[in-house]
């Protein structure tokens, strides 16, 4: 098996584990209906910027499954897929904005905005689907779902952005895939 593929796989695994740990570092008050502001997105974006969007996608997928297995809640089959594996996996797509290009603050923001918007779309649809199946018909479910999800995703995105920009200044090597010490640079 090719060395770089193996290293990427293991980096994904360890970063997904780190995502889980950072999801426990919470900022501000715990939000009422389950959502909370945490650093869970940081390792996912670092992987997406470092190894490309596919790597970010898988990191997010694993991080989502781990958070589901360790205390997620399930109220609807579609909600299960949208709120956990998919919502975190799509964050990785943000890697498209950065991978193989010089990293700049602008690209970090573009990637972050792309990934977080897709995550918002997942939580938003999940909210409509399962809450729509539960709430009385007169409820403006879409408005409610949007407002609720953006209420924690926006601050979470800003905190993640601040950290990713700090990391770019202090440890730019995290975003470069040749950064790992022993891997051969010849294969790039």
């Amino acid at each position: 098996m090719e060395r770089n593929k193996l290293i990427t796989m293991i980096e994904i695994a360890i970063m997904a584990g780190l995502s889980f740990i950072l999801s426990k570092v919470e900022f501000g008050a715990l939000w009422a209906f389950g959502g909370s502001i945490s650093l869970i997105m940081v390792p996912i974006f670092v992987m997406a910027f470092r190894r490309g969007w596919q790597a970010g996608l898988v990191t997010g997928l694993l991080a989502g499954i781990i958070s589901l297995l360790t205390g997620g809640y399930v109220v609807h089959p579609v909600q299960l897929v949208l709120d956990y594996p998919l919502a975190y996996a799509v964050l990785g797509i943000g890697g498209l904005a950065v991978f193989h290009k010089p990293i700049t603050t602008g690209r970090i923001f573009t990637g972050l905005l792309l990934g977080t918007s897709l995550r918002l779309a997942c939580h938003f649809m999940s909210g409509i689907i399962w809450f729509g199946s539960a709430a009385p018909k007169e409820m403006p479910v879409a408005v409610y779902s949007f407002l609720y999800n953006i209420s924690y995703l926006l601050p979470e995105m800003l905190i993640t952005a601040a950290i990713l920009v700090f990391l770019k200044k202090t440890a730019p090597s995290f975003y470069k895939q040749s950064a790992s010490i022993g891997s051969s640079s010849a294969s790039y």
């Binding site: 060395r3 193996l6 290293i7 796989m9 293991i10 980096e11 695994a13 360890i14 970063m15 780190l18 390792p43 670092v46 990391l167 202090t170 440890a171 995290f174 950064a179 790992s180 010490i181 022993g182 891997s183």
Partner: peptide, 15 residues
């Protein structure tokens, strides 16, 4: 920073 550095190092050692 130290957490990421050691995570990447660990990944490489394991590989």
């Amino acid at each position: 920073i130290p957490l990421f550095v050691s995570a990447f190092k660990r990944a490489e050692e394991l590989a």
